[in-house]
Design a protein around this nucleic acid. Sequence first.
DNA 1: CGACAACCATACACCATGTCTGGACATGTT
DNA 2: AACATGTCCAGACATGGTGTATGGTTGTCG
Lengths: 218, 218
Amino acid sequence: MERGPSVSGRRARRGPAPPGDIEQAVCEAAERLLASERLADLSVAQILREAHVSRASFYFYFASKSAVLARLAERVIGEVYAATQTWLHRAEGEAPRAALEGAMRSALALWRRHDAVLRAIVETWHTSPEIGDVWERLIGRFTQAAAEQIERERAAAVAPAEGPAAHTLAAALVWMTERSLYVAISSGEPDFADDDALVGTLTDVWWRAIYAPPPASG
Amino acid sequence: MERGPSVSGRRARRGPAPPGDIEQAVCEAAERLLASERLADLSVAQILREAHVSRASFYFYFASKSAVLARLAERVIGEVYAATQTWLHRAEGEAPRAALEGAMRSALALWRRHDAVLRAIVETWHTSPEIGDVWERLIGRFTQAAAEQIERERAAAVAPAEGPAAHTLAAALVWMTERSLYVAISSGEPDFADDDALVGTLTDVWWRAIYAPPPASG
DNA sequence: CGACAACCATACACCATGTCTGGACATGTT
DNA sequence: AACATGTCCAGACATGGTGTATGGTTGTCG
């Protein structure tokens, strides 16, 4: 609070060198660098050099390196939030499996598009409450959306009513998806080398976990 | 390589203060500290103080802070490896679900017992190849064991033959379990507050993913 | 006793973080 | 034009952590 330019009125006048915003330049530089380097291996000096911004200016707008990631995260989150709106809401005549597959495929595409930022978040959210909050809210949002969808399907008797609590089940599935995408895209896990195999497997697990009648034995 | 005391003959004579091994003291101190602090927030100096070991001695035996975790990890891994032997090998007359539930419950207990070390590994394996290797080998081991079990069950027609490749399916399920245990025990995820709900949910997902006949629609 | 091995205390060079100072340059006002 | 103000830069600085190097101390063994 109380840092940065006055909230209203933005900033009218500025120095000679950069025509754009400092914040913008820093964010873009950081995202560029994150594509090839981990946040932990990244120094503030590197960002400064890449963004052509002075140390003083940087610390005027950002409290620390992880504040940059937090800002970066919020921008991505906006787009991802939009995705949760329609994520699991299957259309009237759509087959459950097709809806799930679409969701998984779009999640994969989303992760690939924002790989740098998402990777950095996943690798560091446990170190800073600032980033941790962002990530947990996002995961919570997906979980909530999934839980509601599960309950809808159960209420409509499209999915069997037996099974674990919808919210807990949703959480496990969401975390599975998060981890699998991270491991497949951001880390180099060979088990998930093939996009179709990854999407197909995730879809299948979601599908069976939600829609399968419990197998025979107890 | 080429560091530490001569491999054979161990160390016969030693200084005055610590009666035990330096390595041992460091490992124990580190594990103690990891119970209440993240590895990243831990300084070498703190470990030194806790272990009553000098800086020079520390760097004689360990290349860095993460080398300590690697050593700590290897010790835990030994015990965990043993667990994979019988992990999913269900006994003759045992119900599949009971076998899975036993596996999940023992995994939970194992994680809880070694929470400090496992948490540190999960939070840092992406930063150091040393630790990354350990973790990926371990996850790979669980995945392999699960894949073999899935294939056994499919061959015996206890599980339906349809579905994703056994190894990919196993990987997704193992990562789900890893992440859920981490989040439930090491982080403070409220969704998994209840042990029984966690075990029950994980068991159910594994169970349906492996044994459920595919639901009706395509 | 003297060589040697394990250990300690300490000091050091290095690097990264976050703070602080002084000055440059634009704008808005008088 | 002169001046105050706001935004920015360059660079110095204090702090704290890492990993290395040095010299000294204490024990064991020949």
